[in-house]
Simulated assay, not measured.
Amino acid sequence: MTSSDWANPYGVRKPYGSNGMNHGHGGEDGANGAAVLSADHPLVPWKEPDHVHQWVDVDHSREALDRFGRSWPELGELLDSNVGYGRVVIVSGPPGMGKTTLIHRCLYEVKQRVAAAGAAVGNPLPVFVPTAGLENDGRRISVDPDGESFAPTRLINARIRREVAKRLRLHDFPESRVKAIIDEEDPYLAYGEMSDLLVQRNALLFAVIPHIRWNDAHLRAAFLRTCLSHAHPRIVLFVEVSQGAAETAKEVAAGLSGSTAVTHLALGELNCEDIWRFSRSARPGHGAPHVLVEPDRSSLMAAHREWNPRDVRELRKVFHSAADALRSAPYPWPIDADALRPHWEPRRTGRDALLRAPIRPRPGG
């Protein structure tokens, strides 16, 4: 961490670990227990409210967020045990396109709605569980104990429930009931027990299921159908499906619709307007470098044609690096193609690193 990170207008405030706690990072903010700034991290507005102001409408994310808002039920419907099912929100799109950030933005909307309408229904307790942490790395959930092959769906589901159990314990749910959720082998019965417990405590569970990085479409579909379709009342599962499998996600969503309420949010690829929108996401009033001036639209449009950034993650890292370099410029310099080029060119050859190493499918799923 360098001093420039504190002033970078494209830096992201990074909550420490899966629960936002300080893990002993250095720096002024680290010493006081606050989160430090990073070149890239999912924007988590439900943990860091200032991230709402860094939300950028790229890759159709605004359309997806609006679609989520239109499809979201009244709070009373979510709490109604007579409905008989929970909800699944599937977010699909290529790697690095902001699926995790979109999920956290949806969670922020949920949190605001629960807070606004909660008094009328006894102020229910919302429990948020990022089952793979805020960085959303699903490998520890999806890989077999051998460390190489894809875990069976029963083990994946059990690991997810253990993460949920950890968060329930933090909210003082009865230990014996939480243990019963973990010990139950049948997923349907386990989620039923979880739902009953949520009803008793007037709570809602919002669990984020990470991109588990399976490589076989049939395994992905089997996992979603056999595990996630068991969502019971008061349980909302946000599921990330990556590697560009939008069509598969759409088919799976259609297959689940008979047993649960499904919303599918699909993100697309970046277009030439997205780089311009992103350039204007710089945070004002946070010690922004004095040498940065208004971004040049025509130059950025040309940069998109030459650079052709693949995803939001690449945009954020390149803009962060360019802004950091401009702090030492002898005169004001806009974020334009010339400023960005030295920082995007080295990344073009390393783009494949965004796709993690494949996991071998387990015979028989």
Rank of each mutant, 00 (worst) to 15 (best):
residue 125 L to H: 02
residue 57 D to Q: 13
residue 26 G to E: 04
residue 37 L to P: 11
residue 295 P to Q: 08
residue 235 I to H: 07
residue 150 F to T: 13
residue 69 G to C: 03
residue 15 P to F: 09
residue 80 D to L: 01
residue 308 N to E: 14
residue 219 L to N: 15
residue 101 T to F: 03
residue 197 L to S: 09
residue 246 A to G: 12
residue 104 H to D: 04
residue 339 A to R: 05
residue 107 L to F: 06
residue 229 S to N: 15
residue 134 L to D: 06
residue 248 T to F: 12
residue 219 L to A: 15
residue 214 W to G: 15
residue 300 L to G: 03
residue 139 R to F: 10
residue 310 R to F: 11
residue 207 A to K: 07
residue 160 I to L: 15
residue 44 V to G: 09
residue 331 Y to G: 03
residue 170 L to P: 06
residue 335 I to Y: 00
residue 358 P to L: 02
residue 269 E to N: 11
residue 84 G to F: 04
residue 82 N to V: 09
residue 177 R to N: 10
residue 230 H to A: 13
residue 137 D to E: 14
residue 85 Y to Q: 05
residue 120 A to C: 06
residue 58 V to H: 00
residue 43 L to V: 00
residue 333 W to Q: 13
residue 31 A to Q: 15
residue 36 V to E: 12
residue 74 E to H: 12
residue 68 F to S: 03
residue 308 N to Y: 12
residue 73 P to R: 05
residue 332 P to T: 00
residue 101 T to L: 04
residue 302 A to H: 06
residue 206 F to L: 08
residue 306 E to W: 10
residue 145 P to F: 04
residue 270 L to C: 11
residue 94 P to R: 15
residue 289 P to L: 02
residue 158 A to D: 13
residue 25 H to S: 10
residue 12 V to F: 09
residue 164 V to L: 07
residue 128 F to Y: 13
residue 289 P to Y: 04
residue 183 D to M: 03
residue 255 G to K: 14
residue 340 L to V: 02
residue 266 A to I: 15
residue 84 G to I: 05
residue 51 H to R: 10
residue 94 P to G: 10
residue 132 A to R: 15
residue 22 N to M: 11
residue 226 T to W: 11
residue 181 I to P: 04
residue 358 P to Q: 01
residue 180 A to N: 10
residue 214 W to T: 14
residue 293 V to Y: 13
residue 182 I to A: 00
residue 180 A to M: 09
residue 69 G to R: 07
residue 307 W to Q: 11
residue 157 N to Y: 06
residue 250 K to E: 14
residue 305 R to G: 08
residue 269 E to L: 12
residue 297 R to W: 04
residue 322 A to S: 08
residue 89 V to D: 03
residue 261 A to I: 07
residue 90 I to M: 07
